[in-house]
């Protein structure tokens, strides 16, 4: 039977303009790997948004990273100042990975 390893996946929805702040926070928490994917369309407290903004700053992206369970608090604490100042959505999910040495 394949052995799986429990990890935490953190998904962060953020505008492109604020993405560098999130990356800085992750670097401070010693997160070494993440992936950023573009978002197409959505609706939030300020109404609808879509990817066809003029310029890149307002485009929404999702940054996803997988971390060890014991490192989760450090990452979330590092993200707290960014969450307090800018509009970002952070969610955490339990996931399982095959190669534990990668995460």
């Amino acid at each position: 039977m394949t052995v799986m390893h429990p990890r935490k996946r953190i998904d962060i929805f953020v505008e492109m303009a604020v993405l560098p702040k999130v990356e800085e926070a992750l670097t401070r928490a010693q997160v070494t790997g993440f992936t950023v994917v573009p978002c197409i369309k959505g609706r939030g407290w300020s109404g609808e948004w879509s990817s066809d903004e003029i310029g890149d700053a307002g485009r929404m992206v999702m940054l996803t990273t997988i971390t060890r369970t014991e490192a989760l608090d450090v990452v979330l604490e590092s993200l707290r100042p960014v969450m307090q100042r800018w509009r970002i959505v952070v969610s955490v999910a339990d996931v399982q990975v095959l190669r534990s040495e990668k995460f």
Binding site: A17, V18, I54, G55, A57, G58
Partner: peptide
Amino acid sequence: YIAVPAAMRIALPQANPAIYV
């Protein structure tokens, strides 16, 4: 509607793009 919204998103996130843009 390009350069200033970008600057406001970074420096003044309390303001609402749904109004200014």
